[in-house]
Computed example of a mutant assay.
Amino acid sequence: MAHTINDECINCGACDPTCPVEAISEQGDKRVIDADTCTDCGACVDSCPVDAIHPA
């Protein structure tokens, strides 16, 4: 099950380099995680300064 980024995202990009499968991209004014690519490793969770990333 993939992680998701909620509306608290401030689009800072801190999570991008932590994703080993490059599942995170920018869409509009926030980041999103591609559920088909995400391996649910959780590497991005600790990098988010506003705690916007959660398990789906």
Results as ranks from 00 to 15, higher is better:
4 T>R: 14
55 P>Y: 01
39 T>Q: 10
20 P>C: 03
27 Q>D: 15
6 N>A: 11
49 P>L: 03
17 P>E: 06
48 C>N: 07
32 V>S: 05
2 A>Y: 01
21 V>Q: 07
10 I>W: 03
47 S>G: 08
46 D>I: 08
44 C>F: 13
9 C>N: 05
55 P>A: 08
54 H>Q: 14
35 A>D: 11
17 P>M: 05
31 R>V: 03
12 C>Q: 10
1 M>V: 03
49 P>V: 00
30 K>H: 13
8 E>D: 13
27 Q>R: 13
39 T>Y: 04
23 A>C: 12
44 C>G: 12
4 T>S: 11
50 V>L: 13
5 I>M: 02
9 C>L: 06
18 T>I: 01
18 T>R: 09
9 C>H: 06
18 T>Y: 04
33 I>W: 05
19 C>K: 00
33 I>D: 04
45 V>N: 04
15 C>K: 05
52 A>T: 06
56 A>Y: 01
7 D>E: 15
5 I>E: 01
22 E>A: 14
28 G>V: 09
44 C>I: 12
42 G>K: 06
55 P>C: 03
32 V>P: 00
9 C>P: 09
10 I>R: 11
5 I>T: 10
33 I>Q: 05
5 I>K: 00
27 Q>M: 10
32 V>D: 01
10 I>K: 15
54 H>R: 14
51 D>P: 10
43 A>V: 06
15 C>F: 11
21 V>T: 14
13 G>C: 03
52 A>R: 01
35 A>M: 02
1 M>H: 10
13 G>T: 09
54 H>Y: 13
16 D>Q: 12
4 T>M: 06
36 D>F: 04
27 Q>G: 14
20 P>L: 00
20 P>F: 01
39 T>M: 11
30 K>Q: 14
15 C>I: 02
35 A>W: 00
40 D>A: 15
51 D>Q: 13
53 I>R: 03
48 C>F: 04
22 E>N: 14
50 V>R: 06
34 D>L: 07
41 C>D: 15
24 I>H: 07
55 P>H: 02
18 T>L: 07
2 A>L: 00
11 N>W: 05
46 D>N: 15
20 P>D: 02
4 T>W: 02
42 G>A: 11
25 S>G: 13
29 D>W: 09
9 C>R: 08
20 P>Y: 00
35 A>C: 02
21 V>M: 07
37 T>L: 13
25 S>M: 10
36 D>K: 09
1 M>D: 05
48 C>P: 08
24 I>G: 07
